[in-house]
Amino acid sequence: MSQTEEVPFRPREKLVEKQKYFQSIHKHTYLKGPMDKITSVAIPLALAGTCLFLIGRGIYNMSHGIGKKE
């Protein structure tokens, strides 16, 4: 039985080049890609800000009796 070798997704040279690039950057692992600042920093900050705003608004409305259903 002979095994057929799978064709790699990328050429080995490109893979080695990318590995060297990412290993040479001295940032945190989750900030190494070009779009990582958006996904790892901006989106969580936006979600946290929205949550804090909605919690604050809810507490304000409860303390002032706004929006009660009869």
Rank of each mutant, 00 (worst) to 15 (best):
M1H: 09
M1I: 09
Q3Y: 09
T4E: 10
T4G: 08
T4R: 07
E5K: 08
E6V: 00
V7A: 11
V7P: 00
V7T: 14
F9T: 09
F9S: 08
R10C: 03
R10M: 08
R12D: 15
R12K: 02
R12F: 14
R12C: 07
E13P: 01
K14E: 00
K14G: 00
L15T: 15
V16Q: 12
V16N: 07
V16R: 08
E17W: 08
E17D: 14
E17F: 05
E17A: 14
K18F: 03
Q19V: 12
Q19F: 03
Y21K: 13
F22R: 13
F22C: 11
F22S: 14
S24A: 15
S24W: 00
H26E: 12
H26D: 12
H26I: 05
K27D: 03
K27L: 03
H28A: 14
T29L: 11
T29R: 14
T29S: 15
K32F: 01
K32H: 05
G33L: 06
G33P: 01
P34M: 13
P34G: 12
D36M: 07
D36Q: 07
D36N: 09
I38S: 06
I38A: 10
I38R: 02
T39V: 15
S40V: 00
V41M: 01
V41Q: 10
A42Y: 05
A42P: 02
I43S: 06
I43C: 02
P44M: 12
L45D: 14
L45Q: 13
L45T: 09
A46Y: 03
A46K: 00
L47Y: 08
L47F: 13
A48P: 01
G49V: 00
G49N: 04
G49T: 10
G49Y: 07
G49W: 05
G49E: 03
T50R: 01
C51P: 04
C51H: 04
L52I: 10
L52N: 15
L52F: 06
L52E: 10
F53G: 13
L54T: 08
L54S: 04
L54C: 04
L54N: 05
I55H: 06
G56H: 03
R57Y: 10
R57W: 07
R57T: 10
G58M: 11
G58D: 13
I59F: 13
I59A: 14
Y60K: 00
N61F: 12
M62F: 13
M62A: 15
M62G: 08
M62K: 03
S63A: 13
S63G: 13
H64D: 01
I66E: 02
I66T: 10
G67S: 10
G67R: 10
G67M: 02
K69L: 13
K69S: 15
